[in-house]
Simulated scan of single mutants.
Amino acid sequence: MKPLLVILGPTASGKTKLAVKVSKLIHGEIISVDSRQIYRGMDIGTGKDLHEYTIDRIDIPYHLINIRDAGEQYNVNDFHRDFSKAYAELDDRGSTTVLCGGTGFYLHSILTGHAFNAIPVNEELRSLLINLSKEELTDRFHTYNTEYQKLADTSTHKRLIRAIEISQYLTQNPELAQDWNQSVEKPEAVIYGLNPPVEIRRERISARLNARLAEGMIEEVERLMASGLTPAQLIYYGLEYKYITLYLTGQLSLTEMKARLETEIHRFAKRQMTFFRKMEKDGLYIHWINAMMETGEQSEFVVSHYEEAINRLH
């Protein structure tokens, strides 16, 4: 199979625009790596920006966006299955796969071959953990001692619960830990990253949040609630859906919601970069591109470098 061309970066780094431009130049197709963009009806809050997939009147094919209904459960094991199917289909028709996104744990699991999240869901344990604070969950997570502790993404309440679930399973089934660790085939990949200066990233995040609120992000959450999703389900998705739900249920004022949401998105971007640095420590080499260059310059560099890398690999 052709090596993956991976473009990653924190929120508001410009990775989707770059992936679209690169895909046009190499006749590629994009597989999204975003744990929330898989859901239909969660558009503004997840920043799908599907108009960006059209460039010079050419529609760039994308995959793993709008594949589940909001409220359904989805984990990295599901992502592995969906990714593998899409990757094989793209390869069969001679397309280059451009893997683009910012969900670090999903990227890490594909690029390193770790498959801990194939471990089954434990609904009983989840019901005990759901109301604990992030601090309480973190303390509980650190009581375990498995190989998974070095790999886990504990950046959100949702992922902490899943991390504890996996840790408990591996503790109770130690003979399976190594098998889970080695059970996914690791693809060849060439990885590129965008990391704008912090002050630029912060400006973009703030401007984008204001734009999305003006575009109807609050109304989007209202529609999701009207469709039957509970406040707890929406809060589970974090960030925009959490804080807007808290506003709609009267727990935060509009001013408080905006301020807290903006702060949390900035923190989220910082955590993303921390996770990407962790990926590098785990042996994944990321070619960091000057994020302040024009997208056209960035794309020309990526395509040229990727083609050279393929020649070296083969």
Score class of each variant (00 low, 15 high):
K278L: 14
E165I: 05
T154A: 10
P187A: 07
K258N: 09
I164W: 01
E147T: 02
S227W: 06
S133M: 01
E219C: 09
H51D: 14
K281M: 14
T255K: 15
L137M: 03
N75T: 02
H287W: 01
D49Y: 11
I218P: 03
K2L: 14
N131Q: 13
V221E: 06
S35G: 10
S95L: 14
K242Q: 11
M42I: 05
H27A: 12
F268N: 15
Q168I: 01
G28N: 03
G102K: 00
Y106C: 08
E222G: 00
S183Y: 05
W288D: 08
D69N: 15
L50W: 12
G216Q: 00
E123V: 10
I286H: 11
L261E: 04
L64R: 05
S23P: 03
N290L: 08
Y285Q: 15
P196G: 05
P197N: 06
S304Q: 14
R159K: 15
Y106L: 14
S95T: 12
A189Y: 08
Q37E: 12
R260T: 14
G296S: 10
I110K: 03
K270D: 15
L209K: 11
R223E: 14
G283P: 03
I191S: 10
I235Q: 09
F116M: 07
L128R: 14
E294D: 15
Y285E: 15
M217I: 01
A211W: 12
H287A: 01
